[in-house]
Design a protein around this nucleic acid. Sequence first.
DNA 1: AAAATCATGTAATGGGTTACATGATTTA
DNA 2: TAAATCATGTAACCCATTACATGATTTT
Lengths: 183, 183
Amino acid sequence: MRNLSPTAKVILGILTLRPRSGYEIKQFVDRSTRFFWTASYGQIYPELRRLEEAGLVEGADEATGDRARTTYQLTSNGKQAVRAWLREPPETYELRHEGMLKVFLADALPPSERAQRLLDMRDQNLAKLEQLRAVEAGIPEESRKGSTYLTLRFGIESSEWAAAWCERAARQVDSDATSRKRK
Amino acid sequence: MRNLSPTAKVILGILTLRPRSGYEIKQFVDRSTRFFWTASYGQIYPELRRLEEAGLVEGADEATGDRARTTYQLTSNGKQAVRAWLREPPETYELRHEGMLKVFLADALPPSERAQRLLDMRDQNLAKLEQLRAVEAGIPEESRKGSTYLTLRFGIESSEWAAAWCERAARQVDSDATSRKRK
DNA sequence: AAAATCATGTAATGGGTTACATGATTTA
DNA sequence: TAAATCATGTAACCCATTACATGATTTT
């Protein structure tokens, strides 16, 4: 069995929770993993078919009248594949962070404008924080546990930390700029 | 002037520091921005030509004997384009984090194995931390300032924070697992 | 003399988003 | 009955990595 494609990883992973259709998988991704692992229809549907062909998932027809619907569940090979993958140490870590790049390059702007790059990055973090808090608000008290909730907490706490860091750094940069001016 | 491609952003940004050849740009990316913005030869060389065609950079022949070498510098249009871009609020923020996905899905494994996903993620952070510390070690005392150094500090401090968070969470998860067993 | 590094480039491939297309069912 | 949502899918792009190709110069 050859390597799982990135999209196969989320799909199989999500199907460990319960069987879902492609449409539902997409919805679930958008509500939960999207902050660290995205997937689009253009990837999900073709991948589901490949996975079925490979014998890792099995589709079941669940049409409602004339509206098509296929839910997929893991086969025993599929379950085994997910567990095997989960046990491997993680490899992929890709980040493309424009806010960070702008902070990195801020010296190309006049001193008075540099701190703003940090405040922009702070705001980016605060916006993310708001989204994550909204997600959390939709989770009933008794469900606030388990792995999925843990990652949400990581998202929230790391955003808070990052926003505070940016704020601090911005103040520093700003006071440097004004003190140098005063001289 | 149409939108800057992702690779154009790093290239133009790096050229604000000083003129460089494609080869040097790649080296610089690998030593500095790679943690939040990558670029490969397959993107850099074609993009440099597109940017020259668009009048944002200008190449100068600096061959050494028979060895070709073209260094590029920003044109005034180019400088203007970078500054304009830097002033826009950042948009791109893409993360693909396998460690996080595995933590998210850890409940698919038996309780005794769940904490390991968090320890793996901690180790990923510690590995990154080590790389960043090595980068820092190569920077002379008097150069430890400015925007570029600031982002390095962010990388270091956020990795430390994340590693500590994972460690804490792993202990929590582990004690949950063993206490539930004891019952 | 060999190995490392400098230097530039392209073709194959992979992975992904976006926009488009289509139509059913449910809700307001 | 109109709008929203459910549901599936594809084609056109875009972006990127990898491997390959080539050869000069510098260091060991």
